[in-house]
Structures are given as structure tokens and as C-alpha cells.
Amino acid sequence: MGREAILNSIKKNKPELVNIPKIDIQLFDEEIDLVETFKNNVQLVGGSIAEINQINNLDSEIKKLYPNAKNIVTHIPESNLGTIEITNETTPHSLKNVDLTIIKGEFGISENGAVWISEDQFPIRVLPFITNDLVILLQKESLCLHMYNAYKKIFDRRRTFGLFISGPSKTADIEQCLVIGAQGAMNLTVILV
């Protein structure tokens, strides 16, 4: 049952081989300001943008943005705001009361305001979803134009778990009214440095 039946049925029913299209990425290239476009798109998808001139200002900027955050996970050496230590051994369920999480983004994509983050930046997979608010620190130089560049960048990664994240969680399932804060993080700020 199952496997062989399906594969045989496909062999019997599939059409003659159609060649795979060769993709010309240049068709999608454009001359745009990567940083400005990225900033606009992050706001378009409901996220916030902050910019700091030097990394030393990171913590003061975050404190300004999230003055009430108490339970904080920082998984970057640049910030000292963390109040909760996590390791690979941490049970994901214990993170249910985390107010704020600060992680690093690997790179951003201008055309859609998304940031690639992966398990390398957060040892517990549920962290960027279960946290109430999320801050992603991102290097301006890391921005690329579109998704095609993005997949080139992550081609050689250690494949476990990773995602493109674009803004805070949201829904419009009640009469098409956009509500920010569905099941994942309520709030996302990308801090560009």
C-alpha cells in the first residue's frame, strides 16, 4: 500500500518530462536604496525600525523602547539586559512568561522587510514566537535585494530550523480587521546598526 502504489500511479500518469526553467535573476534586479526600502517594508508589515550609530547604544535604545520588560532573554553578547539564562537544555514551555527577546538577524531582505533568523541565533526554537516582544539586531550591510539573493546566502547553512520573519504576528480573521499580535510575538522591532 501507500508508497509503491503512489509511485507506480505517478509513473503511469505523468506527462513527458518538461524541462526545468533556467532562472535569470537579472530580470529581478533593480537599482533601489536597500536600507530605505527595507525600512519602509518593515513598517508596512507592522514592525518598527530603530537605528543606532554604534553598538554601545544598543541597551539604552532597547530600554527606551521597552521600558516595562522584566523577563528578558538576550542571546547576543552586545546586550547586557538579559534576566533569564537559556541553554540547549532549557524546556521551551518555561519561556511562556518571557516579555522580551533580543536576538541577532543574519541578514535582511529589502523587497519584503523580512529577516532571516535561524537556530544558530536562538537555541530554543519556540523563543522568537513565544516571547511577547521581539527585538532583532541587524547589520545594515547585511541587507540584500530580493528572495533570490537570500537563498544564495543560506545555501550553505547548517539545515536544522530557520525562518524569514516579517513583522509581528498578525491576523485579519475577524471581519478583515488587521490585529497585530495573534499567536506569536505581539511586537517586533528591527534595530539597524
Partner: peptide
């Protein structure tokens, strides 16, 4: 939307 909020790539179990 330009992309969904989360586009999660699953490759290995925890």
C-alpha cells in the same frame, strides 16, 4: 502582503 510573517524552514527535528 510582501511575504507571510513567518516562513519557517523545517529540516531536522528538535
Amino acid at each position: 502582503q510582501p511575504i507571510t510573517t513567518y516562513s519557517s524552514h523545517f529540516n531536522k527535528p528538535i
